[in-house]
Design a protein around this nucleic acid. Sequence first.
DNA 1: ATAAGCACGC
DNA 2: GACGTACGTGCTTATA
Length: 517
Amino acid sequence: MIEKIGQNLKYDLLMLKKYGVEVQGRLFDTMIAHYLIEPEMRHNMDMMAMTYLNYQPVEIEALIGRKGKGQLTMRDVDVQKVVEYAGEDADITLQLRNAFAPRLEKDNLNKLFDQVEMPLVQVLADLELEGITIDTNALADLSATLEVDMKQVQQEIFNIAGEPFNVGSPKQLGEILFDKLKLDKNAKKTKTGQYATGEEILSKLEEEHEIARKILDYRELIKLKNTYVDALPLLISKRTGRIHTSFNQAVASTGRLSSANPNLQNIPIRTPRGQEIRKAFVPRGPEFLIMSADYSQIELRIMAAFSGDQTMLDAFNNGVDIHTQTASKVFHVGLSEVTGDMRRKAKTINFGIIYGISSFGLAQRLKIPRKEAGTIIEEYFAGFPAVKAYIDQCIEKARGFGYAETILGRRRYLRDINSRNITDRMFAERNAVNAPIQGSAADMLKIAMIQIHEFLRREQLKSKMILTVHDELVFDAHRDELDYLRDNVNQIMQNAIPMGVKMDTGIGVGENWLVAH
DNA sequence: ATAAGCACGC
DNA sequence: GACGTACGTGCTTATA
């Protein structure tokens, strides 16, 4: 079978798939090869040609013009010019492949490239092509409701402020709150000198000043309306009647995927109004339901496996709630004596550990004195000594190698790990801990996606995988296939990469994404 | 066009 | 004693 070499092959695969052509065989995508070699650099062809081939290609804008209105498509360009451009494009791509192949080999990235990233290109192309159905009527109703509520809240804000102003302008808002109304004489300023009016600041003010609550309400309403409710229906494809996101496989420096145009990885879920938006993500027809499968606590499980911490491993393997287990250790009480508040604090600690939080940061998040937060962290490390050792080892390893790596050998270079600048160095140290955990979770989900895609194809199921959200997979599932699909998805996800800890999944099914999740 | 500030997800 | 939670995308406003 002939190897297909290209820059951003998903694009080419999508074009061909639209015309019914399925590309078979091994792929070599220069963009993704470079993403594995240098995850934090840019991966566009012009830049790579300059860096690796010392050659400046003809820019596409020389053919089709600057982007924006009036930009031509390749169809409009004189064939002779296209021939030259396309010839150069193919030549450079091949030369880049020849430059990157030995680098992949040298850095032990061949397996990750050939067995994970390249097969995933096909999977992502199919997800994008499949798309997801949106209930436009529900969104239209919601839009009208949000509009009315927004106007109402806005008027109330004007009444309190004593004048109309642009609530959407942080600059104007800051001046109203802190110069005119003098809500806080010690108001914080941003680095550009204007008043800070972020969520954290306004939340502190809301008990004393009702305008703060109203501004937070206003922000929620405007955000949901502009970013989701009004924007999503405009992106429905005339051809398919569905929404087709674009997954980017080469942007996140940890190995995660990202989603854009539209971003379907940040659809609201927290607030009641946000949940109304999620309800509008529906199956493709009456014979189908939305099925959502997600890894439970994937990052903490991976940390348990990497560190080998026995208490944590036992908790996961015996189905003990991990935040309750953490609370029990930190606050020195039995599992059954852990209160809701203790568990909430423990949950914040667990997240903090993964992200490399300090006592200062934990104090801020838990709204407790810094000293108390410091004690909590000490108690945490006393209760999970192997985790402490693991964190130190991550940093040591990064100092030695200059990079952190995931279970599949995906690298993240940490060039500031020995920096004399403390801010830079500590940032690198946090990444030395976080990158292997977050990245290994990404590795695991990618393998699960490839295997599930193959399973759906092999069994010729009507059900389709349609979305991925970091630790979750979403399916447009045929009613007749529900049990079979659920069992196999569970099985594949839990065994994608055996790590010596039980990987648990949660699966839900329903008439929309909200109830399925 | 680009940066800043903010908010949504995991 | 410094510094102060990882990874993204996208909206509006303000400035150039």
